Amino acid sequence: MASSPTPVRTQMIEAREPPDQRRGVLGWLRANLFSGPLNSLVSIVTIALLVRLLWPFLEWSLFDADWLGSSRDACSGDGACWVFISARFESIVYGFYPEAARWRVDLVFAMLAVLIAWLALPRLPAKPWVGLFALVGFPVIAYFLLVGGHFGLMDVPTREWGGLMLTLTVAVVGIVGSLPIGVLLALGRRSTMPLVKGVSVIFIEFWRGVPLITVLFMASVMLPLFVPSEIEFDKLLRALIGIMFFWSAYMAEVVRGGLQAIDKGQNEAGQALGLSYWQRMGLIILPQALKLVIPGIVNTFISLFKDTSLVLIIGLFDLLAIIRAGLTDTDWLGFAMEGYVFAALVYWVFCFSMSRYSQYIERRLHTGHKR
């Protein structure tokens, strides 16, 4: 049986507009802000409102601001007095850390920056070994450098820590500690063993049902009552333990959401291959689950970083507390706005950096199941 002939179009296709080949700033503006009459009108009104609202702030913070000097006498204009920040910059960064030993803090900051850059930048060699050093070697080195008392280093008790170094210490320890604990709690909550599941559920619901301020008070005041009198817990150590346990409960729920999103066929496929439970979790389930919940994990990290300011209530002077303490100095009364704006800027830089890096990881790992 002969097949019917393939239809052939005999009419010319109507002419269409050529694609827009413009690139750069003008092409982006036309495509995103001025693609049509309504879009152009909304963009113009929005830009006008932003200029109307932001211009006075820019005049105060940049154009009319005073930048150079060592005392409030250098602040004679109507703008911001950033001399307050520059004059107290060392105390903002180091707190009450002895001046002769601040090189140790600088060394720890430099090591941390190098490790983060090495792990964040693509195509750098030996990332597994660098990651292992960051998790095992760096905390030990940082402890001996910051605390001292060994290898001829002057002992610096944690009550003299403060400022940005204390904020970063609490944030880094809380982030590094809460993630693995949260993963274990999430696995425990989904376990088929009643005892393991019950303990995990009680732990998660208890810590999620208590405010962080209460946790810090309990860690500072109540915890010493439940340990032998000869055991002395450092105040900072107690705060770190409380913060890790508190945020690990939230992290567990984030990870559990990722585990529930994985089809059970993945686990059954691992069983068919003869893999043990931990092999299935480590090689098949958890890598997929953690990729799915990267936004939730980073959101928890950002909340943890901002909540480090609550350690003030137990007598630890973090970045915000050091700035507030500087505002009580009679030589600098009346410059609260500059201090709070600077603190907000520092918090925003760290939180925005974590957010942008998480988006980079999502794009690199193709997270989100884009169609």
Score class of each variant (00 low, 15 high):
Glu232Cys: 00
Glu232Pro: 00
Glu232Asn: 10
Lys235Leu: 14
Leu236Asn: 04
Ala239Ser: 10
Leu240His: 02
Leu240Asp: 04
Ile243Pro: 01
Phe245Thr: 01
Ser248Gln: 07
Met251Asp: 04
Val254Cys: 06
Val255Leu: 05
Arg256Ser: 13
Gly258Phe: 09
Leu259Met: 08
Leu259Glu: 08
Gln260Trp: 01
Ala261Phe: 02
Ile262Lys: 05
Ile262Glu: 13
Ile262Trp: 11
Glu268Pro: 01
Glu268Leu: 12
Gly270Met: 03
Gln271Lys: 11
Leu275Met: 15
Leu275Val: 14
Met281Pro: 02
Leu283Thr: 14
Ile284Val: 14
Leu286His: 03
Gln288Cys: 00
Ala289Arg: 03
Val293Asn: 10
Ile294Asn: 03
Ile294Pro: 00
Gly296Leu: 04
Gly296Tyr: 12
Val298Tyr: 04
Thr300Ala: 10
Ser303Ile: 12
Leu304Phe: 06
Asp307Lys: 04
Asp307Ile: 02
Thr308Val: 15
Thr308Ser: 15
Ser309Trp: 09
Leu310Arg: 01
Val311Cys: 09
Leu312Phe: 15
Ile313Leu: 12
Ile314Trp: 09
Ile314Asp: 11
Gly315Cys: 09
Leu320His: 10
Leu320Tyr: 12
Ala321Pro: 00
Ala321Thr: 15
Ala325Trp: 07
Gly326Pro: 11
Thr330Phe: 06
Asp331Met: 14
Trp332Asn: 07
Trp332Thr: 05
Leu333Glu: 11
Leu333Ala: 15
Gly334Trp: 03
Gly334Pro: 04
Phe335Tyr: 15
Met337His: 05
Ala343Glu: 04
Ala343Arg: 03
Leu345Phe: 13
Val346Asp: 09
Tyr347Ala: 06
Tyr347Gln: 03
Phe350Arg: 05
Phe350Asp: 10
Cys351Val: 14
Phe352Tyr: 11
Phe352Asp: 05
Ser353Met: 14
Ser355Leu: 07
Arg356Ile: 08
Arg356Gly: 10
